[in-house]
Simulated assay, not measured.
Amino acid sequence: MSTRIFRVTVRGVFADLTPEQRAELLSRAADHDVLRAAFTPEGHLSYDLAARSAFTFRFQDSGEAEEDILEATERAEEAAKTWLGERGYGYKNLRSSAEDLSQAPLGKRQRRAAARQYT
């Protein structure tokens, strides 16, 4: 059985931030810029608090079976809640989506490379 790679995105909205929390997030905004976004095992947070109060965590996880994506999603949600909770950041509207990369459609280059393997 091969290992499957999962990408899990957890989105939400900061809620009831104190002025100090808001200032802290704004001071670290460059570290959490969407242009630096990446799927990582520990999770990567991105936001643009100056524009809106939404945030996104991106996690990469793995499993052996298709059903493991559900557990990966739960782990990602718990990790996001823990990160926010440890810092006292309120949040709302938390929702997740996950993708099994083994099921993702191939891009144009990948289709060409696959076709060359069989000719």
Rank of each mutant, 00 (worst) to 15 (best):
M1R: 05
M1H: 09
S2D: 12
S2L: 08
S2F: 11
T3L: 09
T3V: 01
R4T: 04
I5W: 07
F6A: 04
R7E: 15
R7D: 13
R7N: 15
T9Y: 10
R11Y: 11
R11T: 13
V13D: 15
F14E: 08
F14D: 14
F14V: 14
A15Y: 12
D16M: 11
L17Q: 09
T18M: 04
T18E: 07
T18W: 05
P19R: 08
R22V: 03
A23N: 15
E24N: 05
L25T: 11
L26H: 07
R28G: 06
A29V: 10
H32Q: 11
H32Y: 15
D33N: 15
L35M: 13
L35K: 09
R36E: 10
T40R: 07
T40P: 02
P41N: 02
P41Q: 05
E42S: 14
E42G: 10
G43R: 01
H44N: 06
L45A: 03
L45S: 00
Y47D: 14
Y47W: 15
Y47Q: 09
L49V: 08
L49K: 10
A50P: 03
A50F: 04
A54E: 14
F59R: 00
Q60V: 12
S62E: 10
G63Y: 05
E66L: 13
E66C: 08
E67Y: 06
I69P: 01
L70E: 10
L70V: 09
T73L: 03
E74D: 13
E77I: 12
E78K: 09
A79Q: 09
A80V: 07
A80H: 04
K81T: 05
W83S: 00
W83D: 03
L84W: 02
G85R: 06
R87D: 01
G88F: 01
Y89D: 03
Y89W: 11
G90E: 05
Y91M: 00
K92A: 08
N93Y: 12
N93L: 14
L94A: 04
S96G: 06
A98K: 02
E99Q: 15
E99F: 07
D100Y: 03
D100V: 03
L101V: 00
S102Q: 11
A104E: 03
A104H: 00
A104V: 05
L106D: 01
L106H: 00
G107R: 03
R109K: 13
R111E: 08
R112T: 05
A113E: 13
A114N: 05
A115W: 06
R116H: 06
Q117M: 09
T119I: 15
T119M: 14
